[in-house]
């Protein structure tokens, strides 16, 4: 049966409308993406930040009974608890830091994290509201930078890609900004018009 298109002359360059069925298996699989590992400096950074907390706790348990004004008696083995936890969490943070991966695909950003509880987040560029890079003092010491992607879903929907070296983080931010501009430049320009100013 003629669908009507045969009677309508097609202009040169005009696309033919099609609506073929796409089998699920043919959709791009996020699992097939080859992830790049984060910076090698991230593992020591993650281990250090995890270790500092537990080291502080272990120090508190060790020092508290020895303070001249404190009348506290703690079981002698108690100091072992934060020490064991310190070793465990430092080891987990280190291995997690070596395994974290990320990838940029044509239309989205993938970030995998976690060792025991693993999480893979996939964020379409079309959903990013804005992008920023951030780094704390320790991160700067290790030459690391985070890329934070904000979406409409609020804090729970934002994605923070940790463990990138500064150059990669800046490149990723630039790439994401270009993608956003390409996809919805008009919308961004219009959004800036909403204003709130002190009078």
């Amino acid at each position: 049966m003629d669908n009507g298109s045969a009677n309508t002359p097609r202009r040169p360059g005009q696309a033919v409308f099609s609506n073929r069925q796409v089998p699920l298996a043919e959709l791009p699989d996020y699992q097939a993406a080859k992830l790049d590992l984060v910076s090698l400096r991230f593992a020591p950074y993650a281990a250090l930040t995890a270790g500092l907390l537990w080291l502080g706790l272990a120090a508190a348990v060790f020092i508290a009974p020895r303070l001249p004004f404190a009348d506290v008696t703690l079981p002698p083995g108690l100091v072992l608890v934060p020490l064991v936890a310190l070793i465990w969490f430092v080891a987990v943070a280190w291995i997690d830091g070596r395994r974290r991966g990320w990838a940029l695909r044509e239309h989205d950003l993938i970030y995998r994290s976690g060792l025991i509880w693993q999480r893979t987040a996939i964020l379409p560029f079309a959903r990013i509201q804005h992008v920023e890079t951030a780094s704390g003092p320790l991160e700067r010491l290790f030459g690391l930078m985070r890329v934070k992607c904000f979406t409409a879903g609020g804090m729970g929907a934002d994605l923070s890609v940790e463990g990138l070296d500064r150059a990669s983080a800046r490149k990723v931010r630039q790439h994401l900004l270009e993608q956003i501009r390409d996809e919805d430049g008009m919308d961004d320009a219009a959004r800036g018009e909403d204003e709130e100013a002190g009078g």
Binding site: Y30, I116, R119, A121, I122, P124, R127, T151
Partner: peptide, 11 residues
């Protein structure tokens, strides 16, 4: 409407 997809797993 999906803003992000997350796949999580435990041991």
């Amino acid at each position: 409407q999906v803003q992000q997809a997350r796949v999580t797993s435990s041991p």
